[in-house]
């Protein structure tokens, strides 16, 4: 359970951004998380209220979009979703693949007044 420290970092980034853009009240924060990120959405939701307590984000809603992890087969070049195929190329059956994406952890946008 290491999400709290990272969510506090989210709060810092969003607060800084909000101040620079003269935002007074934040309604929703939208995050994008790669399927193979070590951040677990369930825990992020659980620690969110504690992380935003006493900040500009207090009372805001949290939305999480999951980004599919894709890999490229090193043997035949097929690009495929890693999790669904358990890391095995659906075309040739090789498990030697390069991860193209899936570890992202982005703050996508804020909805605000």
């Amino acid at each position: 359970m290491h999400e709290l420290g990272v969510v506090i970092e989210v709060v810092n980034v969003v607060e800084k951004f909000a101040r620079e853009n003269e935002v007074e009240e934040i309604d929703t924060v939208v995050l994008q998380i790669g399927e193979l990120s070590s951040m677990i959405p369930k825990y992020i939701r659980e620690v969110y209220p504690a992380a935003v307590d006493g900040t500009l984000l207090e009372g805001s809603k949290l939305e999480i979009e999951i980004l599919t992890a894709n890999g490229r087969c090193q043997a035949c070049g097929t690009v495929f979703p890693l999790v669904k195929n358990e890391g095995v190329c659906p075309t040739c059956g090789s498990s030697d693949c390069e991860m193209l994406c899936g570890r992202e952890f982005y703050i996508k946008e804020i909805r605000c007044f």
Binding site: V6, E9, V10, V13, V14, F17, N21, V23, E104, F105, Y106, I107, K108, E109, I110, R111, C112
Partner: peptide
Amino acid sequence: ILEIKQSV
């Protein structure tokens, strides 16, 4: 809606 698009 303000886009941030920044890695944490």
